[in-house]
Amino acid sequence: MTAVPEVLVAEHAIEYTYTRSTGPIIGAFLTGLRDKQIKGIRAIDGRVIVPPVEYDPVTSDDLHELVDVGDAGVVTTWSWNATPVAGQPLDRPFAWALVRLDGADTGMLAAVDAGDEAQMHTGMRVRARWADGRVGSIRDLLCFELEGDLA
């Protein structure tokens, strides 16, 4: 093969807004977020799963019983994100965490605006910080912030 030419490079973006129908369960969850109310769903084994899912993760049965849960809870695991990338909830370093809300049995993924990695530990309590101008989106729940420490 003849010599490799100087490599051509073109900056290129793929951008698209998907419009998705929510169905009744996710729709109720997002409607709740708009009103600062987080909802979960009761699974066949009695656990409350947040965010709610349409089908039982163990048995695959349809789930229907929506349950209001608190907007504060406990960090069940976390990881520090020192270099946020485009689209993430915060543009300064933050922690990703699974937060088990009061009244829930599973953790939901969210950002925790902890300021410093040293603030983070499993078992810490956090409280939701809500966005202004909520539209019925997961982004209505901006992030969690430190509430105090039970550990």
Binding site: I14, T17, R20, S21, T22
Partner: peptide
């Protein structure tokens, strides 16, 4: 809420 927009 019945629809949601998710830009990528």
């Amino acid at each position: 809420v019945t629809m949601v927009e998710t830009p990528i």
